[in-house]
Amino acid sequence: MGEAPQFGIELSHRVALLTASLALLCLVLELVRRGYLKERYALLWLATSGVGLLLGCFPGLIVFISPILQVQYLTVLFILSFVFLLSIVLVFTVVISRLTERHRQLTQEVALLANRLKRLEKKSE
């Protein structure tokens, strides 16, 4: 801790936050562009990097929030990233559950159709 923090937040922290958020934004956009990540699942990641950029550009927000939560400003960033990760994981388990249900129905349907096909083949012999 050298000079007095600008806007109540260390410059190095601000730079790190902005760099990380920008890198995440570029990474997510590139993944969507290449088709590795679907837009609907990219939204939460985009929101994460968006909030990161917002706080990096207006560090006054962090300084405003930290006394409300009664924590130091750096902890605010940790809490925010934790909340975002938690929501992303929760959304993903919902998605996995839906996929599990669909794949179960699809598998049952395939098995029933295979049985039907066999019977029809036998009948037509």
Binding site: R104, V110, A111, L112, N115
Partner: peptide, 25 residues
């Protein structure tokens, strides 16, 4: 005896339900 083969193991609930779907159809 009719045989419905699930392509991989789905568990007891899903296989019993396959039977009920067959009965329904």
């Amino acid at each position: 005896v009719a045989l419905v083969r699930l392509p991989y193991n789905l568990g007891i609930g899903a296989s019993v339900q396959t039977g009920y779907k067959y009965a329904m159809q």
